[in-house]
Amino acid sequence: MRPPVLEATGLGVRYRRGWALRDCSLALPAGRVAALVGPNGAGKTTLMHAAVGLLAPARGSVVVRGQAAFVAQDKPLYETFTVAEMLTFGRRTNLRWDQPAALKRLAGLDIPLDRKVGRLSGGQQAQVALTIALARTPDLLVLDEPLANLDPVARHDVMRAIMAEVAEHGLSVLLSSHVVSDLEETCDWLVVLNGGRLQVSGDIEDLLAGHLVLTGPAELAGTLTGAGGSMGRVQVVAASRTARQVRMLVRGEPPLDPRWRARQPGLDELVMGYLRSPESVALPGLAQVGR
């Protein structure tokens, strides 16, 4: 069992205008592809910047085991450099550097080495930025909105490249997105941030299996939701009701009353349910993470 590749303990980051991240404790198991989702301003970028050392936390700590490579949201590169010079930049600023692999990747993508970076297409620039991150043979790859501003073909290409690296080298990935459907087939771990607080962190399959969407007559709602919002082994994450019917996202065992119709939620539904109810949380005990 490998120890978590990233571990945050009581992490808090504040800017001049206030806390961007508060009391955030999570652990990412090694070898996973973790999706960091949440609305804009939820603290996704802040968490990533803290993890790669661009930000010093005000409280707590965040530790990466091994080397982290980071690609920022706008995929910054030196525009006046040629692609070959960008590789030299990477080689000169890193101890671990796999130049043959980088050259092979770029050749496979038909990106000319002598072209100035500023003259490449957006998709090609994203690929060069990713190539530099991968050539460092990192243990953790941190990608801030890797698919933003890319056309569908480039999105697919970037995702294929990341998944192939995961398959080949077993590296861990933390990638953020505010579009959940981008992540459904690629990620196996979910981290939800909302308003600077951690709301969900867990294995996607377990999360989906552990939640139910219940639909039933409105008068049944009371049998599930006690005074504290939960009853027995069921926790109501989010509920929406009309005059006669109630629909709820719940966590835990299915109810016994046969008038409920129950089904497993989709990833979209799960994420939306939590984001709509910021007070609900689904966090594992930290010990459980290393599985």
């Binding site: 050392g53 490579a69 990477g90």
Partner: peptide
């Protein structure tokens, strides 16, 4: 201005040495 500090300062070379 260009955001390239996020590239330069996340490589293995520590920022103080850069």
């Amino acid at each position: 201005e260009r955001g390239t500090h996020r590239l330069a300062w996340t490589q293995a070379v520590p920022v103080w040495r850069w």
